[in-house]
């Protein structure tokens, strides 16, 4: 009870710790797991917790977008790829030991630098009094949409200089991203299409011959199998008949 009371008083912090632990913990799961499908599952949980952190920081719309596009779209795509290539040999792939050592050293030092930077600036590490902080239902979707069309409603209070220095909106990036998405759509569809020709058999007649040959082989095999099955079935039937008699 006492613990709960304390947790309530610091609810923002408690949820932060919960979500952060989930995000980083499942991130470790992605890193350490050898099974590629499990990695995908941990990645889903990690990114979901990240969305929780976004909600916590007051970015409701981005959090919902993270859930919808990232987790619902991108990761499904990834899992698609995993399942299309999930043959026995590729599900579990070991990492070389020297890779691990090198990556740990480089990654550890990188983490040190980043953490040092994160806690270095006094302005950033200034603690906020969040005991009474409530996530107000912020009306951010409309300003966000307007900013994408080039109108910044939120920076109007700023002085004129800020508006002039390129803070007037995101219409250009928005268009670039749209065109980019279109290009990606076409490009991905082009690259991932099934190739009908195999390089070895460019000649049409030879390909047809090859197909015919394959089909003949298959039918032969099928005939053999059916023969075996019927034969066995017949003999089994005979056997049961004789037993009955």
């Amino acid at each position: 009870m006492n613990l709960l009371a304390v947790a309530w008083e610091y609810w923002h912090q408690s949820f932060f710790i919960l979500f952060a632990a989930c995000a980083i913990g499942f991130g470790f799961g992605v890193l350490l797991s050898k099974n590629v499908v499990r990695m995908a599952f941990y990645l889903v949980l990690s990114l979901g917790s990240t969305a929780g952190l976004f909600f916590l920081a007051g970015a409701e719309f981005v959090g919902a977008m993270q859930l919808m596009i990232y987790v619902g779209g991108t990761l499904v795509l990834l899992i698609f790829g995993v399942m299309l290539t999930a043959q026995k040999d590729f599900i579990n792939m070991d990492t070389h030991t020297q890779d691990w050592i090198l990556a740990t050293i480089v990654g550890g030092s990188l983490l040190m630098v980043l953490l040092f930077a994160a806690f270095g600036a006094e302005d950033w590490s200034k603690p906020q009094d969040l005991t009474d902080a409530k996530i107000e239902s912020t009306k951010e979707a409309t300003p966000l949409g307007l900013a994408l069309t080039g109108i910044r409603v939120d920076t109007l209070g700023d002085s004129g200089d800020a508006v002039k220095q390129g803070k007037s909106g995101y219409l250009m990036p928005f268009i670039i991203v749209s065109v980019h998405l279109l290009v990606v759509l076409i490009g991905a569809a082009y690259m991932a299409r099934t190739k009908k020709l195999s390089r070895a058999t460019d000649d049409k007649s030879s390909r047809a011959k090859l197909m015919l040959f394959k089909m003949e082989q298959e039918t032969e095999q099928l005939e053999e199998e059916t023969y075996v099955v019927t034969h066995r079935g017949q003999s089994a039937l005979n056997r049961t008949d004789s037993q009955d008699e």
Partner: peptide, 27 residues
């Protein structure tokens, strides 16, 4: 819970249901 972007929230969370099917199918 009042969520200001409720429409997107509902759709986004419902979209996560596909994972259960994929996981079940694979596992």
């Amino acid at each position: 819970q009042h969520v200001n972007t409720a429409v997107f929230f509902v759709l986004a969370v419902l979209g996560l249901e596909v994972f259960s099917v994929i996981l079940a199918g694979y596992a």
